[in-house]
Simulated scan of single mutants.
Amino acid sequence: MATGDADFLAERFEAHRSRLRAVAHRMLGSATEADDAVQEAWVRLSRSEGESAGREIDNMAGWLTTVVGRVCLDMLRSRRSCAEEPLDDWTPAPSCEDPDPARDALLADSVGVALLADSVGVALLVVLDTLTPGERLAFVLHDLFGVRYEQVASIVDRTPEAARQLAGRARRRVRGAQEPDVDLARQRKVVDAFLSAARDGDFVKLLAVLDPDVVARSEAGVVAGAAAVTAVASSFAFVGAVVRPALIDGATGLAVLFEGRVERILGFTFVRGGRIAVIDVVADLDRISELEVKLL
């Protein structure tokens, strides 16, 4: 590539860097990984064929957003399969230098909470971590950055309607996360009903206590949707073990005991209406030791 073309390409890329980093940070929740994703986008752009690389890309913002989206999607899928955590602690998301009032209005209308385009709080990042990679990408790109469903669909290899459904499921979870159910008495009833239904293999009763978009997470991976979680719920009974309701960091959950020792816990996130939105199965003893577990 000629020096003039390289300089031109670098200038076009730098014009979009801040937005790309904002997209990547919201996708990944990690400043370090966001920088890696943006750098990978630059590498792919600079390797484009032809001496006029970059000049023939009419919509550079859309092209780069698609590349960064695909890179982030691969990173999220890898993180899920390897049960990894982000490389660094949460830091405020980088400011996006091209504010969009229409996008802000979309946030207020569709999500129902004041999510500003130039920042993402810890609470939202925690909720985003409960989403599948596809849901997270669809929600971030469409709801936070106004990317059309057709473009989202091309990144996740789905139809535009499927991309719309991914964003919709994510949106409902974000909205529901703003209204947690903190009533311990109601939590206990839901947990007891969940355990009883899991032991009996009663799928109808399980569905009654699960949010339609429930997510179950463990070291083995993520299962999303009430039907899918119900299909594997019998494993939560842990045959041969003693399962007891417990307060886990102040919320009602389940403790699995082997020979009197807590070796696994099920932490629940509840939404208003007494349903389970998230199930976290933790078997790592070091992680369990960091939690306050009180048997009930």
Rank of each mutant, 00 (worst) to 15 (best):
D118W: 04
V126R: 14
D109L: 05
C82A: 15
R164L: 11
P86N: 02
A105C: 02
D98W: 03
T65V: 14
D89G: 08
D181R: 07
R199H: 09
S18N: 14
R261F: 06
D183S: 11
F203V: 13
I288W: 01
F8W: 11
T66K: 09
F258A: 15
A283K: 00
L73M: 06
R188H: 06
A102R: 03
L210W: 09
S289L: 05
D88Y: 00
F238W: 13
F203H: 15
S95A: 15
A197E: 05
A93E: 02
V262F: 04
L125R: 07
V38R: 07
H142P: 08
A227H: 10
R244Y: 02
L107F: 04
L116I: 03
H25T: 01
D35K: 06
A15C: 06
F238L: 08
S289K: 10
W42C: 03
L285Q: 15
R261D: 13
E259D: 15
R188E: 09
D88V: 00
L45C: 05
A208T: 13
D211E: 14
A102K: 02
G176P: 03
R164T: 13
V271C: 12
R55F: 14
P101F: 07
D143N: 02
A102D: 04
E84N: 01
E51P: 01
L9P: 02
A241C: 14
D129V: 01
V209R: 14
F203Y: 11
A227M: 12
P94S: 07
P245I: 10
A163K: 03
R261S: 13
R217W: 00
S234T: 12
G50K: 04
R19E: 09
V67I: 15
I276Q: 05
D104Q: 13
I265R: 02
M60F: 13
V239Q: 15
C96N: 15
V147M: 06
E179T: 14
G267T: 08
R55D: 05
P133T: 11
N59M: 01
V140C: 06
A233N: 07
E179S: 15
Q151I: 09
D181N: 07
A37W: 05
T159P: 00
E85Y: 00
